[in-house]
Computed example of a mutant assay.
Amino acid sequence: MAARNVNLTDRLAAFVDEQVRNGRHQNASEVVREALRRYEAALAAERDAMGMVRAALRKAIHRSETGADIRPELLETALAEMAEASPAGPGA
């Protein structure tokens, strides 16, 4: 496991200390590793969401008469259809 030294703001240092003090984590390294795992998952979710928006935009463009006339309702319909088709279901 690679060792790293990081500088934290006073607020973040207090947060880390509190997580250890209340027993949620055994030490500061566990807090930081969990935070990084959550950040990594959030970035992946953001990337997936942006992919969905891009795909919906392409679908809306395809459905528009001119290919350049993207009406909001076409994009909303495409996004709703994609959300319904998602394995996680709508609102996921």
Rank of each mutant, 00 (worst) to 15 (best):
E40V: 02
A13T: 07
Q19M: 12
L43Y: 04
N27G: 05
N7W: 03
N22V: 15
A13G: 10
L36G: 00
A35N: 00
L36I: 13
S29T: 14
F15P: 02
L12R: 09
A44H: 08
L8A: 00
A45H: 04
D17S: 15
R38W: 08
A14Y: 02
R21L: 13
L8N: 03
R33C: 05
Q19Y: 01
A44M: 11
V31Q: 09
R37E: 13
N7M: 06
A41W: 03
A42E: 15
A41N: 10
D17Y: 05
T9L: 08
D10F: 08
A42Q: 14
Q26I: 10
R11D: 12
E34T: 12
V32W: 02
F15N: 05
V6A: 07
R24E: 14
V6F: 02
A14G: 11
L43C: 06
A45Y: 01
Y39E: 11
D17K: 15
A28H: 11
V32F: 03
A13P: 05
V20I: 10
R38C: 08
D10S: 13
R21M: 10
N22D: 15
A45C: 01
V31M: 10
V31N: 10
L36E: 06
L43E: 15
Q19K: 12
E40G: 04
S29E: 14
V32S: 00
Q19A: 06
R21N: 11
V16R: 02
A42M: 10
L12V: 11
L8T: 01
N27M: 02
N7D: 07
N27D: 15
L36D: 02
T9P: 05
L36M: 12
N22P: 01
R37N: 07
A41T: 05
V6E: 06
L43N: 07
Y39G: 03
L36T: 02
A42P: 00
R24D: 13
A28Q: 11
A41V: 02
N22M: 06
R11M: 04
V16N: 03
E34L: 12
A35F: 06
V31P: 08
R37M: 11
Q19S: 09
D10K: 13
A42D: 14
A44L: 13
A14H: 07
A41R: 13
R33N: 13
R21T: 14
N22C: 15
L36A: 12
E40W: 03
R33M: 09
L8P: 04
A41F: 03
F15A: 13
V31G: 08
E18M: 08
A41S: 11
A42G: 07
G23K: 10
V20R: 01
Q19P: 02
V32K: 01
V31R: 06
D17V: 09
R24F: 07
E40F: 04
A13V: 05
Q26R: 13
L12F: 10
L8C: 03
N27Q: 03
V31S: 06
V31T: 14
A44W: 04
L43D: 09
L8H: 02
R21H: 12
A35D: 02
R21E: 14
L36N: 01
R33L: 09
A42T: 05
R21F: 07
A42H: 07
A42Y: 06
L43K: 08
R21W: 03
A42K: 09
G23T: 13
R38S: 06
V32R: 00
H25N: 09
V16A: 07
A44K: 12
N7P: 00
A35R: 01
L8G: 02
A42I: 01
A35C: 04
A14R: 14
A41P: 00
